[in-house]
Amino acid sequence: MSGKGDRPAGFDQEICKRRSEVERTIDALMGFRAVATRYGKRAHVFHGIVTVAVIRLRLRAYIHCPGARRRLSPFS
């Protein structure tokens, strides 16, 4: 054991943060029914479904962030 509580000696906080980010992203993707059920059986179709799901997640996060309206409109 290291001196940082109950963490093992080889604990890397950066690896833990990245793994958590990957797990949260996969969990968010599973919220899309077509991704969760693997509706597209062919690889290229499934890749397209996942790509669209990721774009929707990124847009949703972008629109809901503070100040997004200023950045969305190029005329303001």
Rank of each mutant, 00 (worst) to 15 (best):
F11Y: 15
R69N: 08
D27G: 05
E21M: 13
F46R: 04
S20N: 04
H44M: 13
V35M: 09
E21N: 14
D6N: 07
L29I: 12
V45L: 12
V50E: 02
A68I: 12
P8R: 00
A61D: 05
D12V: 02
V52F: 09
G3C: 11
E21Q: 15
A43N: 05
A9T: 04
R71Q: 03
V50C: 01
M1C: 06
P74M: 11
R24T: 02
I55K: 04
F75K: 08
F11I: 00
R42M: 11
E23D: 15
E23C: 08
I55A: 05
R58F: 10
A68Q: 07
S73V: 13
R7M: 03
R70E: 09
G5C: 05
Y39N: 03
R19W: 01
D12Y: 02
R56E: 10
F32L: 04
K41P: 00
K41C: 03
R70P: 01
V54R: 03
I26F: 01
K4V: 04
A53Q: 00
R70S: 10
T25P: 01
I15W: 03
E14P: 03
R58G: 08
I63M: 10
M30Q: 05
R60A: 14
A68E: 05
A36T: 08
S76G: 13
R19D: 02
A68T: 10
Y62D: 04
D12G: 03
G10E: 00
R60N: 13
V35N: 07
I63T: 10
L59I: 11
A36K: 15
I63K: 12
H47W: 08
V45T: 14
I26N: 02
T25A: 07
K4R: 15
H64M: 13
A43F: 07
A43K: 10
A61L: 06
I26S: 00
D27L: 11
V22G: 04
S20H: 04
S73E: 10
A36C: 12
R33I: 00
I49N: 00
A36E: 07
M1S: 12
T51R: 14
M30G: 01
V22A: 10
R33C: 00
R71D: 02
A43P: 00
G31K: 04
D12P: 01
S2P: 02
R33W: 01
G10A: 01
Q13R: 04
P8Q: 01
H64W: 09
T25C: 02
I15L: 14
C16Q: 12
M30I: 02
R24E: 06
L57G: 00
D12M: 08
I55H: 07
E14R: 15
S73L: 14
F75Y: 11
E23Q: 14
S73K: 13
R60I: 09
E23H: 14
